[in-house]
Amino acid sequence: MDNALGKSPDEVQFRFRNDEMVDHAAVTVDSCCDQTNATAVRIEPGDDARVLLPFLDRLALIEVNFPAFGDGRGYSSARILREAGFTGELRAVGDVGIDQLSHMRRCGFDAFAPDKPLNEEDAKRAFATWENVYQATIDGRQTIPQIRHGG
């Protein structure tokens, strides 16, 4: 088991939830499936998020790693987990930049631990980039087509 994997709570720069943070490190997807007591897991781009679906109840934190921001598999992982009803913390870690924040938020991430701390002002603006959006995702926002047709 690899305990040195996860980000510590101190490294979480933005968090959109009020519950207590899980303070121990995440395990890999493989070891999560073998272990019955792990409550935090870390997904790499190549992992199949659906493998975790049977364990969602006991997971308080899922970290999704972005080793390079251009690898967008983590966006699908996040949506899949939320679509399956995961309500715990979904944390984007790694090469997370200002210009990815709003999309990540829309895919269900509610915590962010970027490798390089981001400028707070720029980040605030980035989270608020889109007043309205076209696509329905799990974030529950009313979409532009829905608003056009009276919700």
């Binding site: 921001f69 251009g70 690898d71 967008g72 966006y75 699908s76 949506r79 990815q100 709003s102 999309h103 990540m104 829309r106 895919c107 889109w130 959006v133 076209y134 696509q135 995702t137 532009i144 087509p145």
Partner: peptide, 13 residues
């Protein structure tokens, strides 16, 4: 076009 504009999941294909 609208659906694909700023699609949150499909911007880093």
């Amino acid at each position: 076009r609208q659906w694909s504009s700023f699609h949150p999941e499909f911007t880093y294909l």
